[in-house]
Design a protein around this nucleic acid. Structure first.
Lengths: 217, 217
DNA sequence: CGCTAAGCTGAATCGTAGTTCATTCGGGTT
DNA sequence: AACCCGAATGAACTACGATTCAGCTTAGCG
């Protein structure tokens, strides 16, 4: 009988694959995608360089995979809120605050996802990430317009504006060296929300909502 | 007597420098910074590769110089409007429209300045560019707040939001392949302005201002 | 227990631009 | 005219990290 891939081997393979992805993710979280060199990833994962190529066809694919995993986590959190309960205005507010405050916490990783100089392959992945953000925002805006909570407008453009405004406003402070957000983080997040909510025609009654952002895994 | 650099030689040197910068700028305008390879620049400028290094210490410096020249032109246009006459609201509106519509026209170059994947050196230059944008917006916002035209707020954050919202909203459409803006350009620009102006608490009476953007230089 | 296929290793290789430098060129000086 | 010096040349060099692959180890099978 021919050679057969037993369960235990399959499990080990899957395990190694995870190790590799985890190692890469950790390197990215520490030093951005620039730090995710194949040799380093291999070292951190405890395998040889060549082994990486038994699991991923190229560095680009490996990095894309890491990007997707990390960004998917973020988007799921936001999508969960977007599809949750509450008025469109409440959900929008929650999504914005969550987006921004998670970025502030996971500083380095957020910087890698949103602003670090990367090559074209990852830039493509990043564009997809932004587009998905936009879709989440756009969905809420549509709800809000349908419900008469916001004035009608082109939700695609407004959503893209939000998707651009938040990272950019955070970036200076988001840059790995900066510690500005350690103190002023909440204030900045609040100002960004003021801008974005006003941008879609929603004026917050209280200039600063005290509610903690809802953060889930 | 020692060798002396005559005027005619100095003129020729300056001329070559310009040729090089122009060649590089043209390549960037055609194919982004990715197309600005030293060999290509030299070919286009009509000099040898080595000659480039008599005028610029490295590719990075050459590219930075190009970036600065191109972006300086844009910023001067905006700064001119910002320091011109009119209420803060009028100037803000004019600056935003000018920024966006110039980007739409100079599609490829705008993409190179704002969104093309570039290496760290140019990313730094780009950050400076964005910061300067922010300062221009912030100046107008401060005027407007002082004059009671807009509600008070943290102008730095609002300015950064604007500086991020405009490019991001244009980017999908700004990507070199996309021709979406050929038709919908004005509409998109208008929607972006709605968002940004509302974001700083300024609601436009007429949803679509018909005035042509002031474009100089 | 051999025997084979699958998986792993990591030093060597490769590819790609950016950069250098020995040489040639041409205007400036005596 | 003879000589000098800075400018220009472009083929060769280099740096750098991704990728490969010949040899080695381990797991399945009779």
């Amino acid at each position: 009988m021919a050679y057969r891939r037993t369960d235990s081997v399959a499990a080990r393979l899957a395990d190694t694959r995870r190790h590799i992805l985890n190692a890469a993710r950790e390197l990215v979280a520490e030093g951005g995608f620039a730090a995710a060199q194949m040799t380093e990833v291999a070292k951190k994962a405890g395998v040889a360089t060549g082994t990486l190529y038994r699991y991923f066809p190229s560095k680009e694919e490996l990095c894309r995979q890491v990007f997707r995993e990390v960004s998917a986590r973020e988007m799921n959190v936001l999508a969960g809120i977007a599809q949750g309960e509450g008025s469109a205005a409440e959900r929008l507010e929650s999504v914005l605050r969550t987006f921004a405050s998670r970025a502030v916490r996971g500083r380095r990783l957020a910087f890698a996802l949103l602003a670090e100089p990367v090559d074209v392959g990852l830039a493509e992945e990043r564009a997809r990430f932004r587009r998905t953000h936009g879709e989440i925002f756009a969905g809420i805006l549509e709800d809000g317009i349908a419900a008469g909570e916001f004035p009608p407008r082109d939700v695609r453009v407004a959503a893209a504006c939000i998707a651009g405004a938040i990272p950019t406003a955070l970036i200076g402070p988001l840059a790995p060296e900066s510690h500005e957000l350690d103190e002023k983080g909440d204030k900045v997040v609040d100002e960004i929300m003021n801008f974005c909510l006003a941008g879609v025609g929603l004026l917050r009654a209280r200039p600063q909502a005290k509610a903690e952002p809802r953060i889930r895994a």
